[in-house]
Lab assay of single mutants.
Amino acid sequence: KCNTATCATQRLANFLVHSSNNFGAILSSTNVGSNTY
């Protein structure tokens, strides 16, 4: 594990990016499902 501020910031940034991608995918699939019905 790294405990430097830079490494922690990069890890946090990566986490936010992945979370945003997952959130966007969920919204996209939900919109497609609602449009189908």
Rank of each mutant, 00 (worst) to 15 (best):
T6G: 11
C2K: 10
S20M: 07
G24V: 04
S29F: 09
S19I: 09
S19G: 08
A8H: 11
V32Y: 14
S34Y: 12
L12P: 15
N21P: 07
T9I: 04
N22L: 01
N35Y: 06
K1A: 13
N35V: 11
A25N: 14
N14S: 05
S19D: 04
N3C: 15
L16Y: 15
Y37M: 08
L16F: 15
N22R: 03
N3V: 03
L16G: 06
T4S: 13
C7M: 02
Y37W: 12
V17I: 13
L16M: 14
G33V: 14
N3G: 08
A8L: 02
H18S: 09
K1N: 08
T30C: 05
L27I: 14
T6E: 13
T4G: 14
C7D: 02
T9G: 08
L27T: 10
L27N: 09
N35M: 07
F23W: 05
F23P: 05
F23G: 03
F23V: 11
G24Q: 01
T36C: 08
S29V: 15
S20C: 06
S28Y: 12
L27H: 12
S20V: 09
C7A: 00
C7W: 03
N22A: 03
K1L: 07
H18C: 14
H18A: 09
V32H: 07
V17E: 01
N3M: 05
N21F: 05
L12R: 10
L16N: 12
F15Y: 10
H18N: 10
N3R: 04
Y37Q: 13
N14K: 00
S34T: 10
K1M: 12
A5H: 10
V32K: 03
Q10L: 11
Y37N: 11
H18W: 04
A5D: 13
C7N: 03
A13T: 13
F23M: 06
F23D: 00
S34K: 08
N35C: 03
N31P: 01
F23C: 00
S19C: 10
A25E: 03
C2F: 02
L16S: 13
R11I: 15
A5C: 15
N3H: 09
T36W: 07
T4D: 14
S28A: 10
C2A: 01
A8D: 11
A25P: 15
I26H: 00
N35S: 11
C2I: 00
N35K: 10
R11A: 07
I26R: 02
V17N: 00
T9E: 12
N3Q: 04
C2S: 00
T30D: 00
N31W: 05
V17L: 06
N35A: 09
T6I: 06
Y37F: 09
A25V: 15
T4E: 13
C7F: 05
T9R: 07
T30W: 01
S28E: 05
Q10D: 10
I26P: 04
L16T: 14
G24A: 00
T30V: 12
S20T: 13
C2D: 02
T36Y: 11
R11C: 10
L16D: 01
G33A: 08
F23K: 00
V17W: 05
F23A: 05
K1Y: 09
N31Y: 00
S34F: 07
V32C: 01
V17A: 04
S28V: 11
S20H: 14
V32T: 05
T6K: 07
A5E: 13
L16E: 13
A8F: 00
S20R: 01
L27G: 05
A13C: 09
S28T: 09
N35W: 04
V32Q: 10
C7S: 01
G24I: 06
A8K: 07
T4I: 12
L12K: 07
T36H: 12
T9D: 13
T4F: 07
N31D: 00
S19W: 00
L12S: 14
C7Y: 04
C7L: 00
L27A: 05
I26K: 05
Y37E: 08
L16R: 06
S29N: 12
